[in-house]
Amino acid sequence: MKPYLYLLIAVLFETFGSTCLQASNQFTRLWPTLGVIFGFGVAFWFFTLVLKSLPLGITYALWSGIGIVLITASGWLIFQQKLDAPALFGIGLIIAGIAVINLFSSAGHP
């Protein structure tokens, strides 16, 4: 269970870093730029902890899928980026893929 907690922490910090990346205005704003460095640094450190227990392919699929969903939510909530029906449908498919991996695959279990 600990690897999944570490993966969630990694994805949350990656989401923070990506949100700061948008806010940094191409690294021209100091605090968001520092947020990018901090967010991605912590995210990758926790990601390495996950890789001690879980295979890279499954871990990266979960990291990417959960990250896409959270970053999309961040863009919508913080930056008022629009989501249309195809985008929401695609995000639903990503969530379904995450569920399939966690519920039916033995490859992602330590």
Results as ranks from 00 to 15, higher is better:
residue 34 L to D: 03
residue 76 W to G: 02
residue 29 R to Y: 06
residue 37 I to F: 14
residue 7 L to C: 01
residue 61 A to M: 08
residue 16 F to W: 14
residue 25 N to P: 11
residue 82 K to V: 11
residue 71 I to W: 00
residue 105 S to C: 00
residue 96 A to W: 04
residue 91 I to M: 14
residue 57 G to R: 07
residue 6 Y to W: 14
residue 9 I to M: 09
residue 52 K to V: 05
residue 6 Y to F: 15
residue 88 L to P: 09
residue 49 L to E: 12
residue 77 L to H: 02
residue 56 L to A: 07
residue 65 G to H: 09
residue 61 A to Y: 02
residue 98 I to M: 11
residue 33 T to L: 03
residue 96 A to I: 13
residue 55 P to K: 08
residue 16 F to G: 07
residue 107 A to R: 13
residue 22 Q to N: 09
residue 104 F to G: 04
residue 79 F to H: 08
residue 20 C to K: 00
residue 38 F to A: 15
residue 52 K to A: 11
residue 19 T to A: 14
residue 72 T to V: 12
residue 71 I to R: 00
residue 29 R to Q: 15
residue 14 E to M: 11
residue 65 G to A: 10
residue 104 F to Q: 09
residue 90 G to F: 11
residue 52 K to I: 06
residue 95 I to A: 13
residue 82 K to T: 13
residue 28 T to V: 04
residue 79 F to N: 04
residue 93 L to A: 12
residue 43 A to N: 10
residue 58 I to A: 13
residue 44 F to C: 00
residue 104 F to C: 07
residue 82 K to S: 15
residue 17 G to P: 09
residue 82 K to G: 04
residue 1 M to E: 01
residue 35 G to Y: 04
residue 54 L to C: 08
residue 84 D to S: 13
residue 63 W to P: 00
residue 66 I to G: 12
residue 42 V to Q: 05
residue 70 L to K: 05
residue 67 G to P: 14
residue 22 Q to M: 06
residue 109 H to L: 10
residue 89 F to N: 01
residue 100 V to D: 00
residue 58 I to Y: 06
residue 30 L to C: 01
residue 92 G to S: 12
residue 14 E to F: 08
residue 68 I to L: 14
residue 11 V to D: 12
residue 34 L to A: 09
residue 28 T to H: 09
residue 103 L to F: 14
residue 110 P to T: 05
residue 44 F to D: 01
residue 105 S to W: 12
residue 42 V to P: 02
residue 3 P to W: 08
residue 19 T to W: 06
residue 46 F to D: 05
residue 28 T to Y: 04
residue 30 L to P: 07
residue 65 G to L: 11
residue 49 L to S: 06
residue 92 G to A: 10
residue 16 F to Q: 08
residue 104 F to S: 09
residue 7 L to N: 05
residue 24 S to G: 11
residue 10 A to F: 06
residue 101 I to C: 03
residue 79 F to G: 10
residue 73 A to M: 15
residue 81 Q to P: 15
residue 23 A to I: 03
residue 27 F to K: 08
residue 27 F to I: 10
residue 109 H to G: 00
residue 6 Y to R: 01
residue 91 I to P: 05
residue 86 P to F: 12
residue 15 T to K: 07
residue 71 I to G: 00
residue 76 W to H: 15
residue 84 D to N: 15
residue 31 W to N: 05
residue 49 L to N: 09
residue 94 I to D: 03
residue 60 Y to G: 04
residue 57 G to F: 00
residue 102 N to Q: 15
residue 58 I to D: 01
residue 86 P to N: 06
residue 53 S to P: 00
residue 41 G to I: 11
residue 81 Q to C: 03
residue 49 L to K: 15
residue 91 I to S: 10
residue 28 T to P: 01
residue 91 I to H: 07
residue 63 W to A: 08
residue 28 T to E: 12
residue 59 T to M: 03
residue 53 S to F: 08
residue 89 F to K: 01
residue 4 Y to D: 03
residue 23 A to R: 03
residue 60 Y to C: 07
residue 81 Q to M: 07
